[in-house]
Design a protein around this nucleic acid. Sequence first.
DNA 1: GCCCTGCCTTGATCAGTGTCAATGCGCCGG
DNA 2: CCGGCGCATTGACACTGATCAAGGCAGGGC
Lengths: 216, 216
Amino acid sequence: MTALSLSPSLAAPQQPIDALGQIGVRMTFSPGEEIYAQDEDADMIYRVIRGAVRTTRLLSDGRRQIGDFYYADDLIGLEAGPVHRFSAEALGCCEIQVIRKSALRLYGDDGLKIERLIWAETARELRRTQEHVMLLGRKSACEKVASFLLDIARRFRGEVAELPMGRQDMADYLGLTIETVSRMVTQLQTDGLVRFLGCRRFEVRNATGLACLVET
Amino acid sequence: MTALSLSPSLAAPQQPIDALGQIGVRMTFSPGEEIYAQDEDADMIYRVIRGAVRTTRLLSDGRRQIGDFYYADDLIGLEAGPVHRFSAEALGCCEIQVIRKSALRLYGDDGLKIERLIWAETARELRRTQEHVMLLGRKSACEKVASFLLDIARRFRGEVAELPMGRQDMADYLGLTIETVSRMVTQLQTDGLVRFLGCRRFEVRNATGLACLVET
DNA sequence: GCCCTGCCTTGATCAGTGTCAATGCGCCGG
DNA sequence: CCGGCGCATTGACACTGATCAAGGCAGGGC
């Protein structure tokens, strides 16, 4: 990637995220395409405009862990070390705003505002990751899948929810195998807590029951 | 976040942590004593002066997850939400510097410097938490314990290492039971990778072999 | 010095999840 | 419409780590 275009004047934003405005360039990625690589220099940040993204990390023997899934308006690549510990890949077709961090210092006071915005997002990322630790460390397979589905379902406010990822991605996020994920999905359905319409669309049938599986 | 630094002329301390200097008050805590509680307002930050601290979170049914362990000069309580998701407890006797976040505003340019310091620590915390996710999601019991011991041993640079926590704390950090931790410790010892002198002191006997168990 | 207490270790068994293999289902191209 | 391909599901079985239970060990108080 070459030099990023700069738009010098920034208007005060309504939504904090808007502060990033049109800085940087927009790029589109096809399903599975890599946005950045594990161990790559971390001098860009990325904002999801449209679509969904996963961050993944591979152990040397091929075991895979997914760090998180990201949707419209989420920022990715905040890890703030010199290199990325995870790679980022498009789940489906998606559009991403790419911003060179070093460009931000050219924005003066707006730069400080943006800096604070990025910090706030980093803190949010930390909280999400801490939830993930809880999920991985102390929850059963069934609870993991229930938590995951409930999380996704919340984004659809009672409508039929659509999973942007396949079973393997769910498994690698939850620290399970694809077969176990599949069995738990079947079981939750048998118990009447959710109903699947095809393997990527579902609705919550018993929110209370599902919430019971998701201890806090 | 150093790439975003906007005021390079601020006198850079040798140890960045020194910027916190003597702000706030020092407190001492006895073994097991709570430094702050889960769900408590997060308006303080804490710096470990001496001793070790664990952060823990309880599920409503009593399952416990340890978020991380902290040692001298580490900052705790950076979660940056309105309330703490984890509680913090002293592992042994320890001394803690307690700083009210809102007080930092009064320090002007120094305040900004401190703000940056805190955010750099938050980013470091995020990276550590991401490592923890990898550990919990995709490593076997034996690898978890090996990783943990190697981490501790690094702080002692070849000397005999001392564990500041008991087996239950190790288990709750690693997402295992106390019995499994104990068995893995015994196994690593049988395999000649480590040697224990009492249950809290050990030395690494075969660093290469141990490192082989700790895939990256 | 001795006992008591709390933590750690070890053993036996069990449950939950992983592994391996077969089958099913849906989507897409021909 | 059909066949093939990729992903999901299901089943049988193995194995890791949890559970339950019984000692062992070490440190502190008396």
